[in-house]
Design a protein around this nucleic acid. Structure first.
Lengths: 206, 206, 206, 206
DNA sequence: TATGAATGAGTGTTCATTCAT
DNA sequence: TATGAATGAACACTCATTCAT
């Protein structure tokens, strides 16, 4: 079931040049570093000031000029899209990792926690994401497919191992969790508590 | 059961009878009319252009100058807060109304539908609301209490009448519904369909 | 021939409210003042820094904030268009004035001088005007018609009075003059001198 | 008559043989090729996007990095100046060529056509050229002298051959033509037609 | 030496907020 | 008191120019 994992990490989205070590051009070492630094900065700034944060703020947080930000992300929306894309990547990669390293049930629990983090991050720039989805509807679809793929890996594995009640659909679970996190009134502690409840509810009747 | 309703309508929120010089309150009528017109306009504009809509747009939609808008709402955030407050009012008033006019189960169904409308409206200006909550944490708490109060009226009544399975908590239900509506990917039709499913699920086992 | 003048001054283009003296609203006294001040400022700034001058510079020259500039001219191109429009107005008004006040030949001479001023001003923001023409082709056509109308008034009058050689077309003359002024290498003195030559050439063979 | 040509081609403008270390000039070839490629690119880009085109666009069109562009032209204005200079060169060279290869009248006609091309190109970056003239007034003067030199070669030759009316000054003709092309309202077809008319007008009275 | 990534001042434009009318 | 004109800080985005590689 693990080998079902065809999911890819978005590492390739980064203007690659990954290989270069000794031979030709070490060229874009800093460019790549900046790309990643910018994404991290965007995440920080979005978390702090909401999805409406200014490009200037993101650039400053990354310690670069706006121009650099714009070189990597020609339009504001491209930043949103990239952050979201990376979030999804991380979620997918987490599934791979947990399946490889953990037993079925702990892997599922760990991934659900990762999913809650993802969903809460999404809430931060909900309206911006909305806009991105409108301009690029494929994004929404691809993201959903990838996440559902990741989910099915950890969820089906746990169910096959008899760790999850058999009358439960993974997608429904995710829908529930995801929307739960969207609530504007939900604090971080609350979501942790709710997650525990849900996890309990997943176990098969003894 | 109706008398359990301690909830108040936000009418009092209108800058109340301060000025009234000598006679009755002929000026007051204008002011109140404007206040309501402005809120209605804000609602329309928010729905149309998102929570980031401009004050100018709201004033124009209301058919008044910005100055008038600012007389009633000194800061932009006050508009958001007032719209939200009124949404909550409406939800509370709806509970009163449905309880007075309908049988327990239909009343609950009608109210859940109202709640979905409320939640979907909230999604429109989620980030603005977030800001409002930060500036005025009481708002969040009060709103939650009032809504939970309204819910308990219709929900407990239905449960007492044996129309709802007894192993269900109203708050949980609301949390579920509310967050469901936040989903960035949820269309209006989808939410209607989901609501039907949920309603079915509420019935006590035959 | 004078009564042929159906030409209008663009005064009406200004958000009028001209009449208001005592009765209703003196309201836009300052608004109108600003509109005119802004146009004058734009003319000054364009002359000084070329047609590419910044909106900020224009606003500062007018002694107002950018916002005010944008209230009157929502887009940069609107400034260009308005300046040009006013230039044309002035040219047309000059024709009326000279015909009313001067003898046929002096009127023609005076108008040709005005025309040279107009053409030289046009040179300042040639490419901006190009853009304006592309977005609003009517502008070019209307302007040409109005100018040709003005020309025909002064020119035909002079010709009818026997002050101009009869084998000459007014339009050709204007085309010549106009394009002459476009030359990037033409100084103000040169154009004055050339104008004299041309004026001589206009006289009928003795 | 050809030997009257003291005009020089701007080839010398290329950063001349300074570096040359020991052998011939194999490095030089590259540099010169780049220089010319850049100018050609600038011409293309200016024609396409107007005189305000970006350095980046020019470099890309030339197939080099901006750095290389800046090696040859330290400032943006240097590109404008160089393009203009080369235009003038071409005009001068054309005079030489036509005089060497064609009969007096066809040579004049051919050169006038070249001149119209030159003038129309100039219109593209009029304001940039203005700036260049201000920073380097000599440019304007030199250019005029060189062009007038070229003109006199073809024009005087044609007049001496009795192919052109003797009461006509070459400079005036050029001024007329040149400014004609500046008109913002003049299309390419119009200018071609007008040129034909002018050519007819040049012939001596039969 | 060629490249193109980084820079940051500058541009057009918007909009919450203030204030003269 | 209602109006909407004025304000200016802020924003997204561009581009000439510099500089590390």
């Amino acid at each position: 079931m693990t080998d079902q994992l065809s999911v890819t990490t978005s590492a390739e989205k980064v203007p690659s040049d990954v290989a270069g070590s000794s031979s030709g051009r070490p060229l874009r070492a800093d460019a790549k570093r900046n790309y990643e630094r910018l994404l991290a900065a965007a995440r920080v700034v979005f978390a702090e000031h909401g999805g409406g944060a200014s490009m200037e703020a993101i650039a400053k947080q990354a310690g670069v000029g706006v121009g650099t930000l714009y070189r990597h992300f020609p339009k504001r929306i491209d930043v949103v899209e990239a952050v979201y894309h990376e979030d999804v990547d991380e979620l997918v990669a987490a599934a791979e990792r947990f399946v490889a390293e953990l037993e079925p049930w702990p892997a599922l629990v760990a991934w659900l926690e990762a999913f809650v983090r993802y969903a809460r991050s999404k809430r931060t720039f909900l309206s911006e994401l909305h806009e991105a989805f409108e301009k690029n509807p494929e994004l929404r679809i691809t993201a959903r497919e990838r996440i559902e793929g990741a989910l099915s890996v950890v969820f089906d594995r746990a169910r096959a191992a008899g760790e999850v009640r058999s009358d439960l659909d993974g997608i429904d679970l995710m829908q529930l969790l995801g929307s739960m996190c969207m609530s504007a009134t939900l604090t971080s502690e609350q979501s942790a508590r709710l997650l525990l409840v849900i996890e309990d509810g997943l176990r098969p009747p003894e």
